[in-house]
Every structure is written in C-alpha cells, then in structure tokens.
Amino acid sequence: EPEARKIVEKLINNGLSPEDVKRWAEKNNNPEVKKAAEEYQKR
C-alpha cells in the first residue's frame, strides 16, 4: 500500500519512531499503516 508507506515516512520525518507510528496506527485503527511501519523497520 504506497499511500500507507507515504504516511509512515511522513510521520517518521516528523520525528516519530516506527514504534510510535505503529501505536498511532493502532489508535487510529489503521492496519495498513501499521503494516507499512513494520515493513519500514525491516529495511
């Protein structure tokens, strides 16, 4: 999901860690963003 990846990169560029992004995604019920954050961590 390229859109989710863009969101993850934007949040990380704004100073969030991938863990923060995953928590944000869970709080906002956004499994695509959570998955993208996990993939981002593996890179």
Rank of each mutant, 00 (worst) to 15 (best):
E1V: 12
E1T: 13
E1G: 11
P2T: 15
P2N: 15
P2Y: 15
P2D: 15
P2A: 15
E3C: 14
E3M: 10
E3V: 08
E3G: 09
E3W: 13
A4L: 05
A4W: 12
A4I: 06
R5M: 15
K6I: 11
I7P: 01
I7C: 13
I7E: 02
I7T: 06
I7V: 07
V8M: 10
E9R: 12
E9A: 10
E9C: 15
K10N: 13
L11K: 01
L11R: 01
L11Y: 05
L11H: 03
L11N: 00
I12P: 01
N13I: 09
N13C: 12
N13P: 02
N14M: 15
N14I: 13
N14E: 14
N14G: 12
G15Q: 04
L16Y: 13
L16I: 05
L16F: 13
L16R: 04
L16H: 06
S17R: 05
S17A: 05
P18L: 15
P18A: 13
E19C: 08
E19P: 03
E19Q: 07
D20P: 00
D20M: 09
D20H: 05
V21H: 01
V21E: 00
V21Q: 02
V21R: 02
K22A: 09
K22D: 02
K22G: 05
R23P: 00
R23Q: 09
R23E: 09
R23I: 11
R23N: 10
W24D: 00
A25M: 02
E26L: 06
E26T: 06
E26V: 08
E26W: 04
E26H: 05
E26A: 06
K27V: 11
K27S: 09
K27Y: 11
K27L: 14
N28I: 09
N28E: 07
N28V: 08
N28P: 01
N29E: 07
N29T: 04
N30K: 14
N30P: 01
N30D: 07
N30F: 15
N30C: 14
N30Y: 15
P31N: 08
P31V: 09
P31E: 11
P31W: 12
P31A: 10
P31L: 11
E32W: 12
E32D: 10
E32S: 11
V33R: 00
V33K: 00
V33E: 01
V33Y: 03
K34C: 11
K34D: 03
K34P: 01
K35P: 01
K35D: 06
K35S: 07
A36F: 08
A36R: 03
A37N: 01
A37F: 05
A37V: 13
A37W: 05
E38P: 00
E38Q: 07
E38W: 06
E39G: 05
E39Q: 08
E39K: 05
Y40H: 04
Y40L: 06
Y40Q: 02
Q41K: 10
Q41F: 12
Q41P: 03
Q41Y: 11
Q41I: 15
K42H: 10
R43L: 13
R43Q: 11
